[in-house]
């Protein structure tokens, strides 16, 4: 069993608080926007220079000058603002975002993460990921618990080139959610997906965490 992609995103959405400014990464994190609990109003940032992301456009609303960081067509809201890339990253690097939600290839037990390159295979670049994880006070990572061949992705150390050292605060996988009190603390298993036991989570992890 375990959580579906949508359930992982919903679990992440429940971690966000009313009034927060949040940057959502590409993939599962994008689903978070449509799964917010009632009464939670957050402002989404897109690092290509937009604060206040609206929903996808209808066919008639499509504007090639209006895209998100995933290069998808998008719309604005009442109160949206547009800024330059420098201003956009000043918001991120200056610690003005409340949270960022992003995917990862690996997370280590000390909060180090790797999500931007698989040497010799996937060489696309880090984009804004390094800025987002090193500049945002709350970093929430969503990923599968193990890779397709069963290798644990929650590990003692990352095997891939890293994106940021000791940056992850919350990790949500298809099997469980882990949190840590601060960046000096270890991760703690706080919730298992339905029909998943803590023992199974431990068996499928290479990382040390508190039960």
């Amino acid at each position: 069993m375990g959580w579906t992609r949508k359930q992982i995103a919903a679990r992440a959405a429940a971690e966000l608080q009313d009034g927060w400014y949040v940057n959502l990464g590409i993939g599962i994190p994008t689903l978070v926007a449509s799964l917010l609990p009632p009464g939670i109003d957050i402002t989404l940032q897109s690092e290509n220079g937009m604060l206040g992301l609206g929903p996808y456009p209808t066919k008639d609303e499509v504007d090639p000058d209006l895209i998100n960081a995933g290069k998808e067509t998008i719309t604005e809201l009442l109160g949206t603002s547009y800024v330059s890339s420098a201003e956009s990253f000043a918001m991120v690097r200056g610690g003005h975002m409340d949270a960022t939600v992003l995917g990862s290839l690996e997370v280590a037990e000390d909060g180090t993460m790797a999500n931007w390159i698989v040497p010799g295979k996937m060489v696309k670049g880090m984009g804004g990921a390094m800025d987002l994880v090193s500049g945002t006070p709350r970093v929430i990572v969503l990923m599968d618990h193990v890779s397709k061949d069963g290798t644990p992705k929650f590990r003692k150390t990352c095997s891939l080139p890293i994106t940021g050292l000791n940056v992850v605060d919350t990790l949500i996988t298809d099997l469980a959610m882990f949190k840590r009190d601060n960046r000096q603390s270890p991760f703690r298993l706080v919730e298992c997906a339905p029909n998943v036991t803590p023992e199974e989570v431990q068996a499928k992890s290479d990382a040390h965490f508190l039960m």
Binding site: T58, K59, E61
Partner: peptide, 11 residues
């Protein structure tokens, strides 16, 4: 002004 990823919602 080519669009890289056209994503729309239904009316």
């Amino acid at each position: 002004k080519r669009v890289e990823k056209l994503v729309t919602r239904s009316e």
